[in-house]
Write a protein that binds this DNA or RNA. Structure first.
Lengths: 204, 204
DNA sequence: CGAAAAAGGTGCAACGCCTGCAAAGTCGCA
DNA sequence: TGCGACTTTGCAGGCGTTGCACCTTTTTCG
């Protein structure tokens, strides 16, 4: 990796750090792009060559992890039952959106929970992730028809998302949240089991 | 109703009409507040005393119908089983978001489907509606614990939303969409039936 | 090594959304 | 008719965002 790319990475990180720190200290609306740029020691114009918008810096980490999950989606061992694939992939997704690791996870979660516009964007990201899951499901369970596949994934994401968001709104810690996610997953898996074509092992 | 209020209603409608017509003709981003104001024959500043933002004019009708559903939520006949209440209320919700009636329903749906930011806001509105449903469910089925209630409603909304959005993305007409919603509802109701405390009739 | 080319950073100007404020217009009521 | 309440308007300004042109730095290649 050349000097150029290393420098870009460092600059990107400096901007993200400055932004999240300022969001935490002063609040999201109260922090301007100029503030972030000044704190990161770049010009305001440069901010936009690293992040397409002010909101995106909040989601940057999550987006990277979601991208990893997406690439991981295509590499599934054969012979796994669709249900097992679902659980494996879902757990990867839960890790990706849980923001437990990552230096600013708590700040990001708080920001997203409190700002309606950020919450809307988070929901959109989840909705987009659903589409990828549907593609995987249709691949591993070809006999499931399209509407059923879409509905099943919607059910799964909807239940898990609601449970996790509720736990966050109640201020539950990671343990209790994980327990709620497990219970939600149990409800969801019960739906999956009732769908013909899900429990049998998929094609090679 | 005095002259003043009639006039306000007419102005509001004129702004909404002009906005949706222009969005349809030129596109959403290509239409400015000034354009809308000029077409509605008011000053640009006046736009913001009728709608809090440019986006909100797209959701104005839907918001009104959702508000009606919300008020209707509190008036449920006693003795109804929770499952019946769920189906009744869900059908009202489907009508509220289907945008089949309303002069600009098709335009609104197309706009929301094509603009990521509008899609995000639509998802947020659904997520907010979920919270009201959870409150109703907890009232009619008090023995259901909180995480289960939240999860169940999340499952229901998630499945229906996914099915309807899929049908729209595929260009299916109202009939086929309704059929898909029925199938999604069947999957969802099966989940509900398995939850203890849902199928028994609720309290007076 | 040195020059050309490529890529990144910066400043400037501009557009559009949105808000607060104060002035001007309009309506309802006595 | 005139007063008080409400509505509309214009103005000024902040902020996010983008396009453009210019400059600096890095890479590449002769």
């Amino acid at each position: 990796m050349g000097l150029r790319e290393r420098k870009k990475l460092r600059t990107r990180q400096a901007i993200a750090d400055a932004a999240l720190r300022l969001f935490d200290q002063r609040g999201y609306e109260e922090t301007t792009i100029s503030d972030i740029a000044a704190a990161a020691e770049v010009s305001p114009r440069t901010f936009f060559s690293y992040f397409p918008s002010k909101d995106d810096v909040v989601f940057a980490e999550m987006d990277e992890r979601l991208a990893d999950v997406r690439t991981g989606l295509s590499e599934q061992p054969s012979g796994e039952t669709p249900l097992a694939t679902f659980r494996r992939v879902t757990e990867a997704l839960l890790r990706a959106i849980s923001a437990e690791d990552g230096e600013y996870g708590a700040i990001q979660v708080a920001l997203i929970r409190e700002r309606p516009s950020l919450q809307a964007m988070a929901l959109k990201r989840l909705s987009d992730a659903e589409d990828d899951f549907v593609a995987v499901l249709r691949e591993i369970a070809p006999e499931v028809d399209d509407v059923t596949a879409v509905t099943v994934i919607g059910v799964a994401f909807g239940g898990l998302r609601a449970a996790i968001m509720y736990c966050r709104s109640q201020g539950y810690g990671p343990d209790r949240t994980r327990e709620a996610a497990e219970r939600a997953l149990a409800i969801v898996e019960q739906v999956l089991e009732s769908i013909p074509g899900i429990t049998r092992p998929g094609p090679a």
